[in-house]
Computed example of a mutant assay.
Amino acid sequence: MNNYLVIQTDFGISDGAVSAMYGVALSVDPKVRIFDLTHDIPQYNIWDGAYRLYQTISYWPEETVFVSVVDPGVGTDRRSIVVKTESNHYIVTPDNGTLTQIKKHIGIKEARLIDEKVNRLPRSGESYTFHGRDVYAFTGARLATGVITYEQVGPELDPASVIELPAEEAVISNGSVTGNIDILDIRFGNLWSNIDRVLFKELSIEYGDSFEVVIENGTRQIYKNIMTFGRSFADSHLGEPLLYVNSLDKIGVALNQGSFAKAYHVQSGPNWKISIRKVQKLVYN
């Protein structure tokens, strides 16, 4: 193991929760190197937590241990697990759908149930509301620093049993590609879809082509307009919308130097759908 521990939560940093997790990890072994993925996952939003893991994990060295705590079911009978991914990373997390994107796009090689008789912070047995500190940070640090092996996490589980949230695949039908708005590029307000670049290119597209973009939330249409497919944001005028390929090789929607999400009140998640259809290129005289 490489001593790297990467932590993600929905706790924020306005109180001592994240700091307590740091302290537990360092108490296991001062040599552990702790990094933040994010602590700004919206409260209880397992979907966003799942996506941020997928967005990040492949860029870290093999054997890095991730702790992800978005856990509205803390204290219930939901499982606490550690998985080994096909990319040879480890994730310590509640089994509540947090691994949806990892399971779908990267793959889970092995899974184990955390044995809390062994892998739990000493003298924390009567606490059932802070497993992020008492179970996940403790177990993650022990694994990252080699205090325990992966086999010592606990009993083996069938990777197929790891819980997934409902997620639809992007599809092409009648000259239109339809997918999901999986996540927002929070800082800049761009929309990140699950439409892969390779699938999108089956529409026989070129940079500069025009597309009709429709965004719906359930059965309600939120947005419909024509925009250009550009290589970068500079391929549109200030304030204009555009389609582009984002850093995960998926199709994104942006507003040049503006927040598309705020401008049109668009959010993300399983109910937010996007359809893209190629139209005749617009020429202005």
Rank of each mutant, 00 (worst) to 15 (best):
H39N: 05
D158R: 09
Y136V: 01
L113S: 07
A50L: 07
V245L: 03
A254F: 08
G208Q: 07
N225F: 07
I274K: 02
E169I: 09
G146N: 08
T98E: 15
E86A: 13
L184S: 06
P159F: 05
N225Y: 10
G230F: 02
G73V: 05
L199W: 07
L243W: 08
E206R: 14
N256F: 11
R120A: 00
S19W: 11
R123Y: 14
P72A: 02
P159A: 02
I41V: 15
G49T: 09
D196N: 12
T64C: 03
G49P: 08
D115K: 07
W60A: 12
W47M: 09
D29L: 08
G208L: 08
R197H: 12
D40V: 10
G239I: 09
I106K: 05
F11S: 01
K103E: 03
L99A: 10
V198D: 15
A137C: 03
N45M: 01
G107L: 05
G49M: 04
T228A: 08
V28T: 10
R133H: 05
E164Y: 03
I195Y: 05
Q101L: 15
E169Q: 14
N271F: 10
S236W: 05
G107T: 09
Y150A: 06
N194D: 08
I163V: 14
P72D: 01
Y128Q: 09
F211L: 05
K281W: 06
Q43D: 00
V213A: 06
K281F: 00
L53S: 06
R133L: 02
L37D: 11
E206S: 14
Y150V: 09
G132R: 07
V213F: 07
D182S: 14
P159L: 00
Y128D: 11
A160H: 09
V83I: 15
F229M: 04
I251H: 00
Y4N: 14
Y51G: 02
T228W: 08
M21A: 12
G75R: 04
V177A: 05
K201V: 00
D77T: 14
R231V: 13
A261N: 03
G146M: 10
I226C: 06
L248H: 11
D95E: 09
N225Q: 11
S127L: 14
G132I: 07
V69P: 05
V65N: 02
S80H: 10
I222Q: 13
F260N: 02
